[in-house]
Design a protein around this nucleic acid. Structure first.
Lengths: 183, 183
DNA sequence: TTGACAGGCTAATGCCGTTAGCCTCAGGAT
DNA sequence: ATCCTGAGGCTAACGGCATTAGCCTGTCAA
């Protein structure tokens, strides 16, 4: 189980994932990509979940980089809109990787420490409030997932929808009356 | 392939899904629930996808009912908050069904005509604008998915986050400058 | 020269959805 | 009364999945 070859497996797995989607990401396909038989993969990697964790970590890292870049250089956009655009852009550039990294429970224990927080911090940087940041993230994630899966009615003007969300979260944080918070 | 028995299969499948999750929803498990062998299911349903479509339709229908009820009787809440609460409530009551109904592409061709639109209309009723409605829906969906999958950092005060989103979308629709819409 | 080990391989297990083909039994037609 | 047909079970089997066990070969250090 040399670490070097494990990386090569991850690289091959990523190619397979981006080309064939989550269902196409099979141990046999990855082995094929390397010109090897599936059982031989287990000389380098613990199993399929370990491969997925490596891909999830890569996805989180790349997304974090894009988001931080948007925070640092928002261009002509408002900061919230810049982060949303970066989020959408990365997800559309790597839809299958995004889906893998964002679907189902996070294998937190196996991820590099701090990665998750670091990748999410841009939302905090741009909203200034933890709850507002989570809400903005939820909006972005919801938009991306629905867009990637084609769940919006065909012909929807999604740029308008994204702009609507950006506007809703760009306004100064509303004071939420304590009585409205139930649990 | 009598239609009556097909319903019984769907009912059994729903029990299996709610109990064992999406991965546990196998033809063998459904057959077991009915006390028969897996191949016998094919006397009643075309295959696993057909069962899933039936469950998706059920989930959309029930969600639509809850949302419309919230629109009609928002109680003491603001309409937007009432619809969000209904959305969250149904998803948490039936997490596995919600996930099945909302993950991946919609098999639109096989769903009862109009069901999708009808189930989504409450968001329109409560926002008064199509794009804003989609944005609100995306927020709700993102929140639910992240919440169900435990993606928020442990200990997050999610009621606060939901309230933040409700507040952001309760404010009057912002005029989005046309220049900000890119595509 | 020998021995260990990295890194391939095949065979096989148990699960999955699905197909083919057989059997039984109820009920209507002859 | 007999026959036949169709509904609705059944078992056996296929190919694909992740994974395990066990074998073999080539390289390199002692």
């Amino acid at each position: 189980m040399s670490p070097g070859r494990a990386d090569e497996v991850a690289v091959a797995a990523r190619r397979v994932l981006e080309r064939s989607g989550r269902d196409g990401l099979t141990m046999r396909a990855v082995a094929d990509e390397l010109g090897i038989q599936a059982p031989s993969l287990y000389k380098h990697v613990a199993g399929k979940p370990a491969i997925e964790v490596a891909l999830i970590a890569a996805g989180l890292t790349e997304m974090g980089e894009r988001l931080w870049a948007a925070v640092d250089r928002p261009g002509r956009r408002a900061p919230v809109a810049a982060v949303l655009a970066a989020y959408r852009g990365y997800a559309r550039a790597h839809p299958n990787l995004y889906r893998l990294a964002s679907a189902g429970p996070l294998p937190r224990a196996d991820l590099p420490a701090g990665l998750e927080d670091w990748a999410g911090e841009p939302f905090l940087a741009v909203t200034g409030d933890a709850h507002r940041a989570q809400a903005l993230w939820a909006f972005a994630h919801g938009m991306v997932v629905l867009e990637l899966d084609g769940r919006f009615p065909p012909g929807s003007a999604l740029a308008r929808t994204w702009a609507e969300g950006a506007a809703a979260f760009a306004a100064p944080p509303a004071r939420v009356p304590a009585g409205q918070v139930r649990r």
